[in-house]
Design a protein around this nucleic acid. Structure first.
Lengths: 334, 334
DNA sequence: ATGAAAGCGCTAACAC
DNA sequence: GTGTTAGCGCTTTCAT
């Protein structure tokens, strides 16, 4: 069963391939009479003609493929965004290819190259630590890309992010309002600015309320479980135990809650909890956890819109969109 | 900054484009002397030449892109497989594009068409209910594809699946051995054979042990939470309450465990639990849940291997690989 | 050992 | 209103 090409359609309809192309691409139709147009459409239908996108891409120099590089596609946060991205892209004839960097800057760079070789029209990137060089290269080649979710020191590119600092401030303030005197921060040991902003928001709230800083638990990104168990163990063996915890990511909350569960620490009586990110998993925890809900849908849709603008050169200036996360209060904060 | 093409490399190296192609594709090297080869490599390096895969695809009629259609990429089961698939594919120069059907046969068919138009070399498909026609069409066009995870009545295609019936039998048997007299089945109302097999395994174990069948809870795929809450409510208000539950998917377990938690039903004292699929979420549940672990890594790797074989016509017969899931026993079964 | 050239399927400028 | 044709960047056959 040979593939049918534009030539076959032209033959059957007794027209030139140019006419077929014109009709099937719905060009401004002062060309081609309605009768021939119909003849062409019928022929295409009859032969079940499927235009070859590869050939089209080669000619137009547009692949209509977008690359999306995340830290880990198996993380529901990125999974959810990928899903929406893919659905929205499909509607306008774009395809998304996804790669997982695993927080590794070499893999990250390799994926970028692979995707560019694949002739993607643009990239949506969630940077990893030490990936600055990848961005410098992209900028030098003027390759269309945007940054999603994260932030790199010294790299100023268009991107979609959320109000990390403000929402963290708000979350911490809430903990304090509800009575916390010794709130504990559990966050990453990182240089990623978006994550550091979450810390800043926390500390700002402390300062504002004249609370002294307790030593935060700073977790290595590839040693989450252990670092958290050890850290919490230390804090909860003190006489002055934390009475509230702010987890700056779903994965951190995950391990942390597990610790609290195993050690019979009561929420919210002994400690209040607020965690960044929504998670299905919270539903299986005995206490409904208060959390910060990111606008995943908006993030994905805005990202798509922004990268398309850049590809089509409707945007020459650097644009930074900051979307608003929402604090969802439940049992774990009274 | 114009893109550099094979022509530019040829010019700089003072050779024909054919020679460039030969050298860069590492053809059997009785052609081209080592000196010219080096000259070409240097030129390519210097110009930072990146072969255009689109052009190559057009010529070779191979896109090196594989389509992967799942029910929901945000479901960790599929997310995990997608991740491994993508990583393995990358190693051999293939790209994976993923689509989510949302259990909708129309969307499923649309994605297939979209991916074929995209010139994918082959498809890895997780069928949805009533998607038989899509497969009949694919078979008619002899388009390379394999089926993953699921099974459709009347469709006999190459695929990767697991021992649903056997492992379900084993799980149920375990529940009974540990003392259950009234095990309850919570599964889907579906025609998907792989899921029905899980039911069969359950019933077979009952029969073998001369236990009478309790009325199973059959959940509609788009109304999981409600159906389960209502179903369990009914069962736990009877005098003859279930003393063990077998959930045939992670999503079912999810809602079910939530019910048990909210209603203070003790595990394993009141009911034992076994659930299909691993889940991070179980880690936040007060009791460690026994579960059936699917060999995700093997599933993905075998799927890739199998579709490649079919694409390269090394396989003309229909091959069905059945991988073995593993029962992981923890607290919820004593 | 190397080059010339055809052609993959399409778009779009140009010709009539 | 419709056809002719160049050419996108590459692979590969055939010639030399």
């Amino acid at each position: 069963m040979k593939k049918v090409s534009i030539k076959d359609v032209a033959n059957l309809a007794n027209v030139s391939i140019a006419s077929v192309s014109y009709v099937l691409n719905k060009m401004p139709n002062n060309r081609i009479s309605e009768t021939t147009a119909n003849r062409i459409k019928e022929a295409a239908e009859k032969l079940n003609y499927r235009p070859n996108k590869i050939a089209k891409s080669l000619k137009t120099n547009k692949s209509k493929i977008l690359g999306f590089i995340v830290a880990d596609i198996a993380n529901p946060f990125f999974g959810q965004i990928a899903k929406i991205l893919e659905e929205e892209a499909l509607k306008i004839g774009y395809t998304i290819i996804v790669g997982s960097s695993g927080e590794n800057s070499e893999k990250f760079d390799k994926l970028i190259n692979f995707f560019i070789d694949q002739q993607v029209d643009g990239l949506i990137l969630a940077p990893v630590e030490n990936s600055e060089n990848s961005f410098i290269k992209l900028d030098k080649e003027k390759f269309p890309y945007i940054i999603l979710d994260r932030n790199l020191n010294g790299i100023n590119s268009s991107g979609i992010r959320i109000n990390n600092k403000e929402i963290s401030y708000q979350a911490t303030n809430t903990l304090i309002e509800k009575g916390s005197k010794f709130p504990l921060l559990v966050s990453y040991e990182t240089t990623l600015v978006n994550l550091l902003d979450r810390d800043f928001g926390f500390y700002e709230a402390l300062k504002e309320n004249n609370l002294s800083e307790t030593e935060a638990i700073k977790v290595k990104i590839n040693n989450i479980q252990k670092d958290i168990f050890n850290g919490l163990d230390k804090h909860f063996k003190k006489t002055k135990k934390p009475d509230a915890i702010y987890f700056t990511s779903n994965k951190l909350a995950f391990s942390g809650l597990r610790y609290l569960l195993k050690n019979n620490i009561n929420i919210p009586e002994d400690v209040q909890i607020i965690a960044f990110d929504e998670s299905d998993a919270y539903e299986l925890f005995p206490v409904d956890i208060s959390y910060i809900k990111q606008p995943l849908d908006d993030i994905a849709k805005n990202a798509l819109e922004m990268i398309l603008k850049i590809i089509n050169k409707q945007n020459t200036i650097i644009e930074n969109k900051k979307l608003c996360a929402k604090l969802i209060l439940r049992e774990s904060t009274n």
